[in-house]
Amino acid sequence: MSLRRFRSPFADRPTGRNAVRLASLSVMLLLAACAGKKSADEMVSHMASADTLYNNGIDALRSQRYALAAAEFEVLQQNYPYSGYTANAQLMEGYADYLQDKYPDAVQQLDRFLELHPTSPDAAYAFYLRALCYYEQVADVQRDQQGTIEAMNALEEVITRFPQSPYARDAQLKVDLCRDHLAGKEMLVGRFYQQQRNYEAAVNRYQRVIQDFQTTNHVPEALERLVEVYLDLGLTEQARRSASVLSFNYPGSKWYRYSYNMLRSEHLLAANMPAPTSSQHDGGTPARRGFFSRAWHAVF
């Protein structure tokens, strides 16, 4: 799942860097560049002051040297645990790990920051960045979706804790995408059971999509699949009811056209069942808001 990198709120803060870096740091960086064998941590001057380490870390982030940035912030925390830069260094190391796709490391660093600074003005950002780490790891629908659930929970925590923050709206959009992802997984499993003629299991999966993921794009197909299964089972009344809910909420969708044509070919159309409309309404939002849940429970 692609995601544009979220810009750190610290990236443009004034660094107040000294005019000249420590000579020892410059020499070490030059030797490391020439040798090409030293790790990022080896490139950091452990003798530098806290503000120098922090400013060097910010410079490294700006130049996309994320491993070096993380090393600078880590050395700062180890050598100056009570510095005024330490809290920001914890957060920025998490950000540097995130930019390297080191999501477990980033989460660990962000958890540490939140544990030590729960009332920080940057807590909202830390919770959001932590949620993004889980979101980036959402797996394809053919794989286990525990990661999707964890991402959704982390995103919902952002919304609950910081509803007025600039991160809440984006978190809500990603929650919706997670829910659509989970519904897609249910549909994948349901179609497999249907192909295997395990109709009871298929019905359970489709009904879960309809009941638990009503705002997703998968609901129209779930209703149409129920029509197919009920017809295979000879349950004509249930097939009509599923088609009726589909016609009321998604009258222009291709899934209603499929259901309508199936019932018509079997001479099972209800007298009050309308023909499909010409409009294209294939999305996941019911054509008549607020009615869907009542209609579903009324007929089932």
Results as ranks from 00 to 15, higher is better:
172 Q>V: 09
117 H>Q: 13
135 Y>I: 02
176 D>W: 04
296 W>L: 05
243 A>L: 03
265 S>M: 09
23 A>M: 00
206 Y>V: 02
142 Q>W: 02
251 P>T: 14
35 A>N: 12
133 C>L: 02
17 R>Q: 03
292 F>A: 03
288 R>W: 01
30 L>E: 15
117 H>K: 12
108 Q>R: 11
65 R>E: 10
99 L>P: 03
39 S>C: 13
91 L>D: 00
277 T>E: 05
199 Y>V: 03
153 N>H: 08
54 Y>P: 01
40 A>D: 11
9 P>H: 09
94 G>K: 10
98 Y>W: 07
109 Q>P: 07
2 S>L: 00
167 Y>E: 01
48 A>H: 04
7 R>A: 15
69 A>K: 09
248 F>Y: 14
241 R>H: 15
191 R>D: 02
162 F>A: 06
34 C>I: 13
26 S>I: 09
296 W>M: 05
61 L>E: 13
171 A>D: 01
290 G>A: 07
38 K>R: 15
93 E>V: 03
272 N>F: 12
12 D>Q: 10
45 S>C: 08
222 A>F: 06
165 S>H: 09
53 L>Y: 11
127 F>Y: 15
51 D>P: 03
163 P>Y: 10
184 G>A: 15
255 W>P: 00
230 Y>K: 13
177 L>R: 11
105 D>Y: 10
14 P>T: 00
205 R>H: 09
277 T>A: 11
169 R>W: 14
188 L>E: 02
293 S>I: 04
300 F>R: 09
222 A>K: 06
231 L>Y: 12
176 D>T: 11
207 Q>L: 10
96 A>T: 05
50 A>Y: 02
83 S>D: 12
212 D>K: 07
28 M>K: 15
179 R>G: 06
204 N>Y: 10
235 L>Y: 03
57 G>H: 14
196 Q>G: 01
94 G>A: 14
54 Y>M: 15
267 H>Q: 13
160 T>M: 09
81 P>A: 11
212 D>L: 04
13 R>F: 04
54 Y>T: 11
296 W>V: 14
249 N>D: 04
254 K>T: 13
207 Q>H: 06
